[in-house]
């Protein structure tokens, strides 16, 4: 069984070393690049299964690396970013990144994100209709939702939002993606629709934003349904 190959594009040697150890222990094969151009080259030559990209590279801008890779590949890209780079994160997501991890991060968190990203893979595979996340059950075919054993009556939009999050469970879904998918491209900036809808969903699922069990808010960026 060949292990998933992860390409790490990161200029800081200690972080590369730590990632190599941590990912190796997590069952991944690691490829390293310390510069952006080198990373693009390796991504093209070695065709990794996922890319871990540091946004602050010395040679070229991280977003340019994403755009460059996206020209020929849909390989999942995880961005490593600092806390205050909200605009940076959104720009990276817009450029085609799939998710991000804020430095400093816990290994567990990184591995979970990476697995969630890799799960996106199967193209053309038939989607499972029944999804279960802890005590939350969602039937995509019948649009039936049950939380803690009780049925939750969601409106159409609310269900669409929840379904989108569920299909990408464990992964970040950005405001823009949610809005354009559910409400259409005309409402790409109307984040308050989303805020209200999420509020209602949480209420109906019996979820508490202050102590969330199902939906996690990534302030200013998007939402995430807790995986598995």
């Amino acid at each position: 069984m060949n292990q998933p190959r992860i390409l790490i594009i990161e200029d800081e040697a200690p972080i590369r070393r730590f990632l190599t150890i941590a990912l190796g222990a997590g069952g991944f094969e690691v490829l390293e690049a310390e510069r952006g151009r080198k990373g693009i080259e390796l991504a093209a030559v070695l065709a990794p299964d996922a890319v871990l990209l540091d946004l602050g590279l010395p040679d070229i801008d991280g977003k340019a690396v994403i755009a460059s890779i996206r020209e020929w590949s849909q390989v999942p890209i995880l961005v490593l970013s600092v806390r205050d780079g909200e605009a940076e994160k959104i720009a990276a997501l817009d450029a085609g990144a799939d998710d991000y991890v804020t430095k400093p991060f816990a290994t567990g968190e990184l591995l979970a994100r990476l697995r969630a990203a890799l799960r996106k893979r199967p193209i053309g595979t038939i989607e499972k209709a029944e999804l279960t996340f802890g005590t939350l059950e969602i039937n995509l075919a019948t649009r039936f939702v049950r939380a803690d054993g009780r049925e939750a009556k969601l409106t159409r939009k609310e269900f669409d939002v929840l379904a989108l999050l569920a299909r990408h469970s464990g992964r970040l879904v950005g405001h823009r993606q949610l809005l354009t998918t559910v409400w259409g491209t005309a409402h790409a900036e109307d984040t308050h629709y989303l805020r209200v809808a999420i509020g209602h969903i949480r209420e109906k699922l019996g979820d508490d934003a202050a102590d969330p069990r199902f939906i996690i808010t990534e302030p200013g960026v998007g939402y995430r349904l807790l995986g598995e």
């Binding site: 308050h192 805020r195 508490d208 934003a209 202050a210 102590d211 969330p212 808010t217 302030p219």
Partner: peptide, 17 residues
């Protein structure tokens, strides 16, 4: 400040995490 409308509960959720 990069202001946006946000529920206090959501902030608290992040803080706890």
């Amino acid at each position: 400040p990069n202001r946006a409308a946000i529920d206090l509960r959501e902030i608290i959720g992040r803080v706890r995490a």
